[in-house]
Design a protein around this nucleic acid. Sequence first.
DNA 1: ATTTTTAGCGAAAACGTTTTCGTGTTGATA
DNA 2: TATCAACACGAAAACGTTTTCGCTAAAAAT
Lengths: 366, 366
Amino acid sequence: MLLFDELYVMKKRITLKQIAKELDVSVSTVSKALSGSSEISEDTTQKIQAFAKLYKYRPNNIALSLKNRKTKTIGILIPEIVHHFFSTVIRGIERVANRRGYNVIVGLSNESFTKEIINMEMLANGSIDGFILSISKETLLKQDYHHFHATINQGIPIVMFDRVVSEVACDKVIVDDFNGAVKAVSKLIENNCKNIALITTMDYISVGKLRTQGYLEALEHHNIVPDTNMILKIDDSLNVEYHLELLEDEIAQFLKNNPKIDGVFAVNELYAVTAMKVAKKLGFDVPNDIQVIGFTDGVLSKHATPSLTTVSQHGQKMGEQAANLLIERLEAEDTQSEQYFSNNNEKRDFIKVVIETEIIERESTK
Amino acid sequence: MLLFDELYVMKKRITLKQIAKELDVSVSTVSKALSGSSEISEDTTQKIQAFAKLYKYRPNNIALSLKNRKTKTIGILIPEIVHHFFSTVIRGIERVANRRGYNVIVGLSNESFTKEIINMEMLANGSIDGFILSISKETLLKQDYHHFHATINQGIPIVMFDRVVSEVACDKVIVDDFNGAVKAVSKLIENNCKNIALITTMDYISVGKLRTQGYLEALEHHNIVPDTNMILKIDDSLNVEYHLELLEDEIAQFLKNNPKIDGVFAVNELYAVTAMKVAKKLGFDVPNDIQVIGFTDGVLSKHATPSLTTVSQHGQKMGEQAANLLIERLEAEDTQSEQYFSNNNEKRDFIKVVIETEIIERESTK
DNA sequence: ATTTTTAGCGAAAACGTTTTCGTGTTGATA
DNA sequence: TATCAACACGAAAACGTTTTCGCTAAAAAT
């Protein structure tokens, strides 16, 4: 009998109960001694702490979560992780979360409405204290936000970033898409571009829309009348990552149809880099014949030849801000329920943090 | 009094106890009814299930975790998330984890030994059932693996991927670095390259070492004597992502010193793409003067001009395999403790899954 | 008519904590 | 000597589950 145990002893984590039993005191005494309560005598405290240290006691997180009714973990819900921007955001979230004693648990919606819901429900069952998320494309298309309302109504706060929506009452962190686009296009104009094209997405993606508006605004501000022929809307429902040729063909056709183009503003770096590639194939020189600016500062921009001038989104900073917003709200709730009748027990209003964009000048502009 | 509650009623998740109270039965009855136990009468079962559905009852995950002493969540610990390879691995892990009812919680070591340890301890306190990890550079350098042994000894299984180490008793998923390199270099040789250079990292990174060995093997196999001058070892302790010029200078110098080079094999895509860029600046044509093959099939390879021929690592597949290995071990433990004296109660041996590499041919080779 | 079975339910323990509220002992005070 | 703090500790509840074991009453069997 007990052969198995004799064969290989693995030391499971020790609990308060075991310490108590071993030292012949009560569980409460152990707990208090370990937290340094003055209730317990110097002697026993010493003894218990030494024992706990020896056996590397660490309180069980799950038990603490159950007791405190808070898990100290943040749920991140994003459409896609193999994406430079989103991973920088996660890095930012993880940084401040860890610093403030939180863990992060990530779910991927894969741009799907149902996966977004399933993931939310999976995590909202007590696993997390709050969400940081960016809305999936399908959800934006359907405009169905009931799951967000539902979790907020259950007392689980949400912070949205980048792809946000005004219908949901929560904190938001966005990049100044509009002004970023204005800056980029203005720069092209100042660099003497006369015919500036826009390569963008379909309108239901809020950020794409805003960047388009910024493009138009910049043109108008410089008294240039926009030409709809100079705007190329890519339908990215066909997953463009795997059909690169389609994208290239579309852009090639676009450039051929508009031979006067001498400047391109693209709403993401893939479109921008592809535009450069196509332009070169068509015999144009970048930046001398055509100047290009993209949005989102990722690896592609940095390592393309010529390297791409971009509007940087500061993903990491967005993540950090989002995490700070969420944690502040979570910890405000704590103190609130205690000082029930203090005068600062109303919740802070929902705020929208705007991260300024920055133009990173590289070789694709003059 | 209770002004706050009247102002805005938020519906906290309902518990078994509340249902029990409301329907005037015991908690046990509710629990059994919801799980469809035959102990409970048809009537009460109906009533309870209807009520639970109406109030959207969902069992509290934390309570379940405490009771079952398993969390159904996997801890992922990687050096860096803003990295195409690692994010594809995460995607793979998340895919199968979700399908099998698990969540993933991620920690970033940032290539630091201490952050790796802190993260492990933070999660090993009951938050997760097992780890999937890739070892940080600093840990590999120090060769200090006590924290891995410690957590395994606590009964928390580990699956390592990509950056693994033989000293630790756990399942491993690696790419066939050696043969991948052999294939790549052989391809260059078959493409008539006579002087093939290697751009690699310092030796303490296991994968770099293996790829270097593969390079040497391929040469020898074709009766070519390796020339140490043709091997460039990059010291990436200087974080090369932020000092791109340093890397370029080093490679430029290298190419100038070895003007006969007509083929380059690089152990990652950054080195490969940079080599192409530098070669072009020095007036070489890729692939006509110099052919280039990289390791790791990421965005850079796909979108570089010319696009880069690479050895694909299949990160997603690695993640999927790793998750399957871990979950199988976790669930084997379950049944094992029950059938204590069955004849299959010994643990499965630790296995090392090797993911085959694949050469993706693009424009940088002929 | 008495015993046995069975259906239907509840009490309680357990998971690992923290915290509130006793309670017994000691030494000092009245 | 009787009363009272102060001190040092333990018992128990609570967080939300599941599960084992009892228990009661009715139905079935003897």
